[in-house]
Amino acid sequence: MQNFVLDAFDRKILTILQNDATLSVSEIAERVGLSQTPCWKRIKRLEQEGVIDRRVAILNPERLGLHVTVIVAVRTSHHSDEWLQTFADGVSQIPEVVEFYRMSGDVDYLLKVVARDIADYDRIYRKLTKVAPLHDVSSSFAMQEIKSTTALPLGS
Rank of each mutant, 00 (worst) to 15 (best):
N60T: 04
T37H: 14
A132F: 13
S77N: 13
I94N: 00
E47Q: 12
V114E: 11
E27V: 08
L46S: 05
L17P: 04
P38N: 07
D108M: 03
R55V: 04
R102S: 11
D122L: 08
A57D: 08
Y125M: 09
W40R: 11
E145Y: 02
V98P: 03
K112L: 09
Q18H: 01
M103W: 05
S148H: 12
Q93R: 13
A8K: 06
N19C: 03
K130D: 11
T150K: 15
S140Q: 06
K12Q: 11
C39K: 10
D10L: 06
T69S: 07
S26A: 15
H79F: 14
V25R: 13
Q85M: 09
A88Q: 14
G105L: 08
P38Q: 14
Q2C: 10
D10H: 10
Q2R: 11
H135D: 15
K112V: 12
I43V: 10
N19Y: 07
G155C: 00
S26K: 15
K44E: 14
D120R: 02
P38I: 09
V91R: 05
L6E: 02
Y101C: 04
E27P: 09
I118T: 00
L6C: 02
V107M: 07
R116K: 15
M1C: 06
D81K: 10
T22E: 09
D53W: 10
D81N: 12
T76K: 05
L34I: 11
I71L: 14
A21H: 02
I13H: 03
V113S: 00
V68P: 04
D122A: 10
Q48S: 13
F87V: 12
D117A: 00
R126I: 05
A132E: 08
K12V: 00
Q144H: 13
L17K: 10
Q48L: 06
D117N: 12
D122K: 08
T37Q: 12
S138N: 11
E47H: 04
L134C: 08
